[in-house]
């Protein structure tokens, strides 16, 4: 409400029920809604995952636990720096508060950078949510069989291929050419095929049981969490130019509460997505 109006009307007195700033109360209420939002998402993940017929292991989907742990560490550090920024603001040392907030911003950006790298790795291996670009299948199907045939044909057509590989590929291709061939049985054989280096591609990136649901949940959870991180960074950028003295401690506290919440969400996502 703008000040001219308040100046004209009288200043009303109120009877607040809780001894905190309105902004802080509102932020805690907002966090309640966020809890419900992530409860729906994480709850969905848990039931879909543990009810699934199959679920990929971290190696299947190129998930790196150390990187996940590193990101956890980064977020914890950023939680410390933002709480230190708040303390500095309360002590009215705006410069220090600003420095801490800036470090928090950098840490948050690092988190997002690492996240982006992880996504890159997944995309590289064909782990897309996108129907058109996805190259994983929940189980070997006809499409898989034809993909395998094409791969085998390129080996048999290769004049430089060594004799052992050629023989093995020809034998497998013979089976694959049988219209009654069971794609799943083919997949089993292809998995054991080690004569040519590319054979690894015939196995993993193509058949990942439960891979579709894994990409769905992984990208949904990490993606929406990353959006929350990005929103936090945006707020930091808006707050940084301000003078962060005691007058702004309340603002900094609100921002901090939000950031800690984002940290807590990750604290749960890390074991659920990487370690389970």
């Amino acid at each position: 409400m703008d000040s001219t109006a308040s100046a004209e009307s009288i200043q009303l007195r109120y009877q607040p029920a809780v001894p905190i700033r309105n902004g802080k109360l509102m932020l805690w209420l907002f966090l309640s809604t966020e809890v419900m939002f992530f409860a729906a998402l994480i709850g969905t993940y848990i039931v879909l995952r543990f009810g699934a017929a199959a679920w990929p292991t971290p190696t299947d989907v190129h998930l790196s636990e150390p990187i996940g742990a590193l990101n956890t560490f980064i977020l914890i550090c950023s939680s410390v720096t933002i709480v230190l920024a708040l303390e500095s603001a309360r002590a009215d040392s705006g410069g220090r508060a600003k420095a801490y907030l800036f470090v928090t911003l950098l840490l948050g950006a690092a988190f997002l950078g690492i996240k982006a790298y992880e996504y890159q790795v997944k995309f590289h291996h064909g782990l897309h949510v996108d129907r058109a670009r996805r190259t994983i299948y929940d189980q070997a199907d006809l499409e898989y069989a034809s993909g395998l045939r094409a791969a085998l044909r390129s080996v048999t057509a290769d004049t430089n291929a060594d004799a052992a590989a050629l023989a093995a590929a020809t034998a497998l291709l013979e089976q694959a050419n049988n219209p009654d061939a069971d794609p799943s049985a083919l997949a089993l054989q292809a998995a054991e095929f080690s004569e040519v280096p590319e054979a690894a591609d015939w196995r993993l990136p193509i058949v990942i049981p439960g891979g579709h649901m894994w990409t769905s949940t992984y990208f949904l959870l990490t993606g929406l969490h990353a959006l929350h991180v990005a929103a936090g960074l945006l707020v930091f950028v808006c707050v940084l130019p301000l003078r962060l003295g005691t007058a702004r401690a309340g603002l900094l506290e609100n921002v901090g509460l939000y950031w800690h919440f984002v940290d807590i969400v990750w604290i749960f996502l890390f074991p659920l997505l990487y370690l389970f």
Binding site: F37, A40, V129, S216, F219
Partner: peptide
Amino acid sequence: PVLTAASVMQLTDRLLGTG
């Protein structure tokens, strides 16, 4: 928030191909 989360999932099902 639960409806929002559910709608986001339906949107990704439709637009991105999650399942």
